[in-house]
């Protein structure tokens, strides 16, 4: 490094500004600065820019309202910390799921019952009476539970034959 030189060693100057020199190099550059106005001016220019940047960033940080960010942060954590069943219950409680779930349940129930075999009609419990004549047989029966009366009419082949013959 030359004293009183107008050619500035920018790499060295940068390292000096960033405290990246060893103690001997520091001493040498400090001595050089005392005698070199060009380097002093360079250091001052960089120093002004540096302090302006630092000042503006620090001011921005000091003037920033962290309240809304804190609110969002703690809301997100609260949501994350809730047990899954509470989150599910809250989700269900919003009604977003309730109506589709109810509809689905109804569809499933209808499907389930439609797949069941039709209840068979139980046979007659007793023959109440029977009438036989020339033309037909009539039976009157009753179901065991509902006590419905069934009238069974059977035309006999012989009668048919007779009719056809007649």
């Amino acid at each position: 490094m030359k004293n009183n030189s107008h050619k500035i060693d920018h790499a060295l100057l940068n390292a000096w500004m960033d405290n990246e020199l060893d103690s001997d190099e520091y001493a040498m550059f400090d001595d050089h600065l005392k005698e070199c106005p060009a380097c002093r001016k360079e250091v001052m220019s960089h120093g002004q820019i540096s302090s302006l940047i630092t000042k503006n960033i620090e001011q921005a940080a000091e003037n920033t309202n962290f309240g809304p960010m804190n609110q969002r942060l703690f809301d997100a954590l609260e949501k994350r910390n809730k047990p899954w069943w509470i989150r599910l219950a809250r989700f269900m409680g919003t009604g977003k799921v309730l109506i589709p779930a109810g509809t689905l349940a109804a569809v499933v129930l209808v499907f389930f019952f439609s797949m069941q075999p039709a209840a068979s009609i139980s046979g007659p419990s007793a023959l109440v009476s029977s009438v036989s004549g020339d033309y037909a047989s009539v039976m009157i029966m009753e179901t065991p539970n509902e006590q419905q009366t069934i009238i069974w009419i059977q035309e006999t082949a012989s009668i048919d034959n007779k009719d056809h013959k007649g």
């Binding site: 921005a60 940080a61 000091e62 920033t64 962290f66 804190n70």
Partner: peptide, 9 residues
């Protein structure tokens, strides 16, 4: 938060 904000900003 303020120190980290300075870095991010």
């Amino acid at each position: 938060q303020q120190r980290l904000y300075k870095t991010a900003y």
